[in-house]
């Protein structure tokens, strides 16, 4: 794939950063939208990726990010979401409802804020929305209860993607989710897996409204 305009939301995650570079090297225009605050700019290093910083919890900041994407790229073909904030806590070990709410706000509502803000720039593009999610979003596989709040936020996000697909599929939007061990890939992102995730998220020949891929 080449010549597409791609925004990667949550590109501060090392795995998403790898994906940005894969797409850029293929000849696409990539905007790396990195979640963070003032002072984090230095962490971006010196690279040639176009980037913008934003706060997924604040609607104004998300709208500013989307405005920058519109100015930079004109149309957007692919919006890729990789917002991933995790904390460990379980019942009997100090469950904190405030922290659980923060995880929902970031992991589940953050993507909705971003898509809502980017939609006006996507109508003339390829209309692909992609999501990187973690293996812990599975309700059928036992995962243990140590990430209670995180897992719940992922289930909520999975539901939001289904509703978005129902709502926007009729307008030609297609949705892809790549499910992988995001914690492992944060430590040591694998080039081959990043390339594989890029392939499934950007395969525009496949126009099925929603597909979910488990990446190993």
């Amino acid at each position: 794939m080449a010549g597409k305009h791609i925004v990667v939301i949550g590109a501060e995650h090392p795995f998403a950063d790898r994906m940005c570079r894969v797409w850029r090297d293929e000849g696409n225009a990539v905007l790396a939208a990195r979640a963070g605050g003032a002072g984090n700019e230095a962490a971006a290093g010196t690279d040639e990726l176009e980037r913008v910083w934003f706060n997924p919890l604040e609607e104004a900041s998300v709208r500013a990010m989307a405005a920058k994407a519109g100015e930079t790229m004109g149309r957007i073909d692919l919006a890729i979401i990789c917002l991933d904030n995790r904390k460990e806590f379980a019942l009997r070990e100090g469950f904190d409802s405030g922290e659980a709410m923060e995880l929902y706000d970031y992991n589940a509502l953050g993507p909705l804020r971003a898509i809502e803000a980017l939609l006006p720039c996507m109508g003339e593009g390829s209309k692909r929305i992609g999501l990187l999610s973690d293996v812990r979003d599975s309700l059928t596989e036992p995962m243990g209860a140590r990430h209670l709040g995180y897992d719940m936020s992922l289930a909520a996000r999975r539901m939001s993607v289904q509703i978005m697909a129902n709502a926007l599929g009729g307008e030609g939007y297609t949705f892809r989710a790549a499910v992988l061990d995001l914690e492992r890939e944060r430590e040591e992102p694998r080039e081959e897996l990043a390339a594989g995730a890029c392939r499934v998220l950007s395969d525009l020949a496949d126009q099925e409204v929603l597909r979910v891929f488990r990446m190993e």
Binding site: Y104, L139, G144, M152, I163
Partner: peptide, 29 residues
Amino acid sequence: VERCERRAWYGYCMSKAALNMGTMRLYEQ
């Protein structure tokens, strides 16, 4: 999620999907 055909109701459906996940994890624990 598997049976969801709604085009809105984001907040309510997301809360119930999360509730199901929370119940599953408590079941495990």
